[in-house]
């Protein structure tokens, strides 16, 4: 049978993913080296991506939607016992990994927005609303969550390597090209990602990020 090209991830989702990888690395570097001007810009970019991703989870292509991949623990257990997958996209376990990474990243950004450095010199744009002590606490939380984030990223990469080496299944390719070759016979099922919806999401994310970066002042 002729292989068909089955789309797996829409373009906005892939852009989200790889921009996030780069920006997390850059945030790490700029945070550790106290390059705070750069660090804030990088953080705003991540905030922008996160807002867009939340929106895309409601309005994006089929595999991007939370309704498609956020499943109960029973589905995750059944998947672990090897009942297989019906469709492309996140499996029930991978869905939870996505949810936890998004949640950790949101917490990371929130803490950063209120964080104050030890000199009282550098801070997130919302630190004006809290005391110095609270800002220092946010900074401690920010560092703590960073370690959790690193843990999740390590797990994420380990899972991908497990699929690659033990299951002989390459998950990296589809996250780059967006599709897999399936010898299926059946016609490819489209993802139905809409350009207009993507543009709407970009506008919403840009507006919210701008507002937050200005300390919630217009």
């Amino acid at each position: 049978m002729k292989p068909i090209i089955q789309p797996v991830w829409d373009l906005p989702l892939r852009l989200f993913h790889w921009l996030l990888v780069g920006l997390i690395a850059f945030s790490w570097w700029s945070g550790e080296n106290h390059e705070m001007e750069w660090h804030r810009w990088s953080g705003y970019a991540i905030l922008f991506l996160l807002v867009f991703r939340l929106y895309w989870g409601l309005a994006g292509g089929r595999t991007a939607r939370f309704s498609r991949f956020v499943r109960g623990p029973r589905a995750a257990l059944a998947y672990l016992r090897g009942s297989g997958e019906a469709d492309v996209g996140h499996n029930p376990l991978g869905g939870w990994s996505v949810v936890s990474m998004l949640a950790i990243l949101i917490a990371m950004v929130m803490a950063g927005l209120f964080a104050v450095d030890v000199d009282g010199l550098e801070s997130g744009p919302l630190a004006d609303y809290v005391s110095f002590d609270a800002g220092r606490w946010a900074s401690d939380v920010h560092s703590l969550i960073f370690n959790l984030l690193m843990g999740l990223i390590v797990l994420h990469i380990a899972a991908i390597l497990f699929y690659l080496l033990a299951r002989r299944r390459n998950l990296i390719g589809p996250m780059i090209t967006g599709s897999v070759k399936a010898v299926d016979g059946a016609a490819a099922v489209p993802l139905r990602a809409s350009v207009w919806r993507a543009l709407t999401g970009l506008l919403i994310a840009a507006a919210i990020t701008y507002f937050v970066s200005k300390g919630l002042h217009l």
Binding site: V116, D119, G120, L121, S123, D128, F132
Partner: peptide, 10 residues
């Protein structure tokens, strides 16, 4: 001192 620096900054 940190709190005072924060006030000045703001």
């Amino acid at each position: 001192m940190g709190a005072a620096m924060k006030v000045l900054k703001e």
